[in-house]
């Protein structure tokens, strides 16, 4: 292994860069310094904490603890999706749909990959399961959050266009076609852009990490390609599910647009 360990001094020097940046911004009176420091501190604490948690998980190698960790990650991701909604569905539907739309593809694809593709023994080995699930959840969270927000916001802002079609006797599927299309595109565009520039403009984080840790580049690339396909399909399937369930909630059985089921805008 040609892996070089980082010392606290190394990290401190890197942190000093952010402190310098914060000082410069404060001097020029442009604001933002406080939230820059707070979120930097948060990032450090969160990552140190997860480092300790992962060490413990890897050591115990207990499937139930791995499952618990997965559920905690899912709950937080679900909350992030809801927090990004400007007009969320009332009565827990927003959280519920976001959660289901992430959980179903993320867990299914993670388990499928562990069992059938990577074939690690036992399949729940946390060293594979947790990072895999984390990468899939992190990316689907962004996509579903964007797409679902577009769906609910768009329903409210294009009410006249949607109702004009309902009034001419179109059903909710036809009347919401453009809205659903826009939502899917909004959700998928970041992922498609990621695929387009992968390896050209950006070297994906996981691949970089593996290479830094001493893995042969071509092996790291293979893992990255696998992850990219997983992220893309999980985001796509999850968004389609969220759009489908969200649309059914936005309309009722009499094909009315039910904006009363959305909370007031923030």
């Amino acid at each position: 292994m040609n892996f070089i360990h980082l010392t606290a001094f190394d990290l401190g020097l890197a942190a000093l860069l952010v402190v310098l940046l914060g000082g410069l911004i404060a001097l020029s009176g442009l604001g933002l310094t406080r939230s820059l420091f707070v979120s930097s501190l948060r990032m450090t604490l969160q990552l140190l904490l997860i480092g300790v948690v992962l060490e413990t998980l890897f050591r115990l190698n207990n499937p139930w603890l791995v499952a618990l960790m997965g559920l905690v990650m899912l709950a937080i991701a679900g909350w992030e999706v809801v927090a990004r909604q400007k007009r969320r569905l009332r009565g827990g539907w927003g959280y519920g749909i976001g959660l289901l739309a992430m959980a179903l593809p993320a867990f299914t694809l993670t388990v499928l990959t562990l069992v059938a593709l990577i074939g690690v023994q036992p399949w729940y080995t946390p060293q594979y399961a947790i990072p895999l699930l984390g990468m899939i959840l992190g990316n689907t969270m962004t996509g579903i959050g964007l797409g679902f927000n577009r769906l609910t916001m768009g329903a409210a802002s294009s009410r006249r266009e949607i109702e004009a079609q309902l009034l001419l006797g179109y059903d909710m599927r036809q009347a919401s076609r453009k809205l659903r299309q826009d939502s899917l595109h909004t959700a998928m565009v970041p992922t498609i852009n990621m695929l387009t520039v992968a390896g050209l403009v950006s070297l994906p984080g996981m691949m970089t990490g593996q290479i830094l840790a001493g893995t042969a580049p071509i092996e790291a690339v293979k893992y990255q390609i696998l992850i990219m396909f997983l992220i893309t399909s999980a985001t796509g399937f999850g968004t389609m599910l969220a759009i489908e369930l969200g649309t059914r909630r936005l309309f009722d059985e009499r094909q009315r647009l039910r904006l009363d089921r959305l909370m007031e805008g923030k």
Binding site: I162, L167, L168
Partner: peptide
């Protein structure tokens, strides 16, 4: 709605 048709004060164009 095709049989009982309503024209709102401002019609929508999609």
């Amino acid at each position: 709605r095709r049989k009982v048709a309503y024209l709102p004060a401002e019609s929508g164009w999609w």
